[in-house]
Design a protein around this nucleic acid. Structure first.
Length: 284
DNA sequence: CACCATGTTCCTTG
DNA sequence: CCAAGGAACATGGT
C-alpha cells in the first residue's frame, strides 16, 4: 500500500470514522507487528483509550488517543511496510490469516493486516524525529533540498528514498518524479544544477499531489474483503483497476514505450531496488 | 525452480 | 567518524 499518497488517502478515510471510538479490547496476534513494544504494555496503555485524531507524517500514520484519568495524550504510530493494510470489519467477520493486530471498537473492529510483516504499529514515536520535511509543505524548500543534496555522491534516485532527506517518497514515486522532471535517476545528487533541483522539487510535489487526488476519487473497497489490486491494496472494480494501472507513467513499464517519446522504458537496479526511466527523456 | 515485490534496519567494507 | 553496498526480515505472485 504504502507511499505518501496512499497513506494520506487512508488517513483521510480513517480519521472521521475513528474519531470518538474507544478500544474495548485488543489482540496482538503477531508480536513482531508491534516491535519494539511488548504486547503486555501495548495492550495496557491502549485498552480503554479513545481515538481523537489520525494524521500522517511521511509514510507513518499518527493516531492520537486519550484515556479518562490520564492527562497526556497517547500517540501510536502505524507503518504499513510493503503490504500492510488497515480496515474496519464487523465484529462477527472472519479474521484474515494475516491479521496482526485487532482493535475491538464495539460492533466493529479495526484490523491491521500485513502479509509480509514489514509493517508495524507502535507507541514508540522516536522514528518521527528522524524524518525530513514533508514534500508538500512549504518547509520543503529548494534551498534546503539543494543543500542536503550537495553533500552526496549517491545517485539522485537512491537519495530520494532516504526518509531523512524528504519524508514519504518511496520506490514508485521516486521513479515517477524523476521522469516528470526529465532527470536521469543516475545523476550524482551533488551534480544537480540549481535549475534541476528546482524542477525536481516541483515534480515531487506534482506527482505526489496528483496521486493523492487520484486516490481520493477511486472507488476503493475499504472493507478489506476485496482482492489486493495495485498500490492501494484495497479492492477495485475492473474499470478502476485499469485507470489505476495507467496512472503510473514509467514505474513497472520496462520495455513498454515511453508515454512521451515512445522509446522503450528501461529498468536498472540501484541500491538493490528497481528503477524505471526513459533513456531518451532522462539523459545523464 | 527462478525471480520479483509499494520498506527499513543492521552489518560490513572502504 | 562517515558513505555506500548488501543481506536480512517474511510471504506470495508470476
Amino acid at each position: 500500500m504504502p507511499e505518501l499518497p496512499e497513506v494520506e488517502v487512508l488517513v483521510r478515510h480513517l480519521a472521521p470514522l475513528l474519531k470518538g471510538r474507544t478500544i474495548h479490547a485488543l489482540e496482538v496476534r503477531r508480536g513482531r507487528a508491534i516491535r519494539p513494544d511488548a504486547p503486555k504494555q501495548f495492550r495496557r496503555v491502549l485498552i480503554g483509550s479513545t481515538f481523537k485524531a489520525v494524521s500522517r507524517r511521511g509514510k507513518y500514520l499518527v493516531f492520537r488517543l486519550t484515556t479518562a484519568g490520564r492527562r497526556e495524550e497517547i500517540r501510536m504510530l502505524g507503518h504499513l511496510g510493503m503490504t500492510g493494510r488497515i480496515y474496519f470489519q464487523p465484529d462477527t467477520g472472519k479474521l484474515s490469516r494475516h491479521a496482526a493486530v485487532v482493535f475491538s471498537l464495539g460492533r466493529t473492529r479495526l484490523i491491521f493486516e500485513d502479509v509480509r510483516g514489514f509493517g508495524r504499529m507502535t507507541l514508540d514515536t522516536a522514528p518521527l524525529s528522524e524524518l525530513g520535511p514533508e514534500p508538500l509543505d512549504s518547509a520543503f524548500t529548494i534551498r534546503h533540498f539543494s543543500n542536503a543534496l550537495r553533500r552526496s555522491r549517491q545517485a539522485i534516485k537512491v537519495r530520494l528514498l532516504d526518509q531523512s532527506l524528504v519524508a514519504g517518497v518511496g520506490n514508485i514515486y521516486a521513479s515517477e518524479a524523476l521522469f516528470h522532471a526529465r532527470l536521469s535517476p543516475r545523476i550524482a545528487a551533488r551534480r544537480l544544477t540549481h535549475e534541476q533541483v528546482k524542477r525536481l522539487v516541483r515534480s515531487l510535489r506534482d506527482v505526489l499531489a496528483d496521486a493523492i487526488k487520484f486516490g481520493s476519487t477511486l472507488p476503493l473497497n475499504w472493507s478489506g474483503a476485496g482482492r489486493v489490486s495495485g498500490l492501494f491494496y484495497y479492492g477495485l472494480g475492473a474499470a478502476a483497476r485499469e485507470s489505476h494501472d495507467e496512472r503510473l507513467r514509467v514505474y513497472d513499464r520496462q520495455d513498454r514505450p515511453c508515454v512521451r517519446c515512445g522509446t522503450p522504458v528501461r529498468r536498472i537496479v540501484q541500491a538493490g531496488r528497481s528503477t524505471y526511466y526513459c533513456p531518451q527523456c532522462q539523459r545523464d
